[in-house]
Design a protein around this nucleic acid. Structure first.
Lengths: 349, 349
DNA sequence: TTGTATGCGTTATCAT
DNA sequence: ATGATAACGCATACAA
């Protein structure tokens, strides 16, 4: 699959030995810097650790020596006595789900800004794979973020007991979490649909084990009747394009004129399948997505959706994790309805 | 932004102390396991390290003890004597660029499969940010993958000198790299366009510093004339939707009937802008994208594009990095033309 | 086969 | 203000 030269790791000796990946063998240590600056290793450690506590003169000398020798601290060696790795973890269920793009970016930026490095893991579908990912990541981070975990409360609580953990889009008592307030967005969407004459709508639901799915449905159940609208839950097989596509028969059977989907993927899948079978969107069917992922405004008609500030969410999760933000006082970000072209007047039939 | 309870790190004592993220303080070590199993620490180390080299009986006993105590090796402590962290890095220019989704996933899977964990970093645009990312990641990984680096050959060579490095979509003498063969895909696209009567086409180019951009243009320059087609390079401001959108005036001025874009983002940006100004695609303009990202078949008309096997590419990069695959013998993956709806007969005008 | 001793690079606790 | 020294948890060379 690749080509071109193979990287040869230069051994300490001149004879090339292991062509394998090796950390850094001839790295310069604080001992080298100490010798070069004519001080003791511990002084070097202090000078580079907290620039306040030693004489300005020797501090300069040490910094110069470090720069000259190209000294870079060994994070592993540092982690041993301190117990902190300056590394944070992020575990998502599916990389290729566009929902996570901005979340990952937001998290990575916040982490980098605070001097942390991100380790990333994917937990596929199952709780088992999620457990694996957790166990693999846990030992080498100072804490981690779990996005939309499928693990149950008990398992999560156990994890949080000896590792700092922040949940995204999932609330468990006793565990820090960052969630989005979807009520305003959902309400706006319902108002919009009602204004267009829709009185009976369907909710294309997400995974049964998903906390936010339950939350969204819950809010819908409260807000729709309040507006004199009927609402039914229409299950999907998976929260993807094909899940949306496969739901069309059930949607037609349900006889609703408008839909709110668990996410944009489902919404788009349904939209395209509906068009493929000759339905007009929004003429015959109004569709509202959720998340506002990349691609939502690429489809024709552009997808009306409830935008979730994913980037901000990822950022917030990291901030909470490193203690820069008190989750108690900070108020939840709000999802916002974005009307586009996939919603319109209900056709009387 | 968040809410709900704050995670409290349980100190070794019963009195809660630091509410901050701390690695793992009361962790069980090989000493605990050794005591529990009635052997020496080194025996434990061996039993857990290479299950072959000690008596089967004591090995069992040790494994049981480890399991009972919930022992998990400390990667940092292990990394110190061995010099290897069992961690691999991946640096991309932009997380939210859909091109990387599959690349990241492929890489993460290959890494996980081989027992490695991935650390991820984003290098924004500039070479400076890329350097930062490299320096931040480098010390804690056994090696890393750099996707479409903006750094110059010299800088890359310097990095590769003391860290294992694999380049994706960039070739530098002396550094391992994984690239895709675009000639077949490009040729197929040109054949397709010529068959539809296009004789003059434009190439919407990517970043000037991009190696693959140069490569693609090069191949186009060879293959188009060979088919009796004219080809012109049409620069874009950035490899994004807006870059494609902004290129429309130049496209019209160039008077070409078909375009090949540096990537799908540019292609889609142009496609939508063309439609917005009343042009018909493919009636007035045929457009071919590059990469086949998520979203390429979401637009109307669906985008014809040259598919790059990103997932396989990420996987291959990791395999090369950990030495599972010899980049010399493995032959490059081939890009493949995927005709869809954005290409069609040239309208005589 | 198993135990003992030493070192990995750094921070932290003592002295000085 | 600075220097010696002991951990941190694990791997390994050597001894038994």
């Amino acid at each position: 699959m690749g080509h071109v030269n193979r990287d040869i790791e230069k051994a300490a000796t001149d004879v090339g030995q292991q062509p394998v990946a090796i950390g850094r063998q001839g790295a310069v240590t604080i001992y080298d810097v100490a010798r070069h600056a004519g001080v003791s290793p511990s002084t070097v450690s202090r000078a580079l650790g907290k620039p306040g506590r030693i004489s300005a003169r020797t501090e300069r000398r040490i910094q110069d020596a470090a720069a000259e020798l190209g000294y870079r601290a060994n994070p592993m060696a540092r982690a041993l006595p301190t117990g902190r790795t300056q590394t944070l973890g992020l575990i998502v269920t599916d990389f290729t789900n566009p929902v996570y793009f901005d979340l990952v970016r937001g998290a990575e930026r916040a982490a980098a800004e605070a001097g942390y490095t991100m380790v990333l893991a994917e937990s596929q579908e199952s709780g088992a794979a999620e457990s694996n990912a957790v166990e693999r990541v846990r030992p080498l981070v100072d804490g981690f973020v779990l996005a939309a975990p499928r693990l149950d409360d008990e398992a999560l609580t156990a994890i949080a007991q000896d590792t700092s953990l922040v949940l995204v889009n999932r609330a468990v008592t006793g565990i820090a979490s960052v969630v989005v307030d979807v009520r305003t967005g959902l309400s706006a969407a319902l108002d919009h649909l009602r204004a267009h004459g829709h009185s009976s709508i369907g909710y294309l639901s997400g995974p049964a084990r998903s906390w936010i799915n339950a939350r969204r449905w819950e809010v819908l159940m409260e807000e729709a009747p309040r507006r004199g609208m009927h609402i039914v839950e229409i299950p999907t097989t998976e929260p993807t394009l094909v899940g949306g596509r496969d739901a069309l028969p059930r949607v037609r059977a349900a006889g609703v004129s408008a839909l709110v989907a668990y996410n944009d993927l489902i919404a788009i899948g349904l939209l395209r399948e509906a068009q493929a079978t000759g339905l007009d969107v929004p003429g015959d069917l109004s569709i509202v997505g959720f998340d506002d992922i990349f691609g939502a405004e690429l489809v024709t008609p552009e997808l009306s959706t409830i935008r979730v500030p994913l980037g901000a969410l990822g950022e917030a999760a990291i901030r909470v994790l490193i203690g820069r933000v008190d989750p108690e006082t900070h108020e939840p970000a709000k999802a916002e309805f974005v009307p586009r072209q996939s919603t319109g007047p209900a056709r009387s039939r």
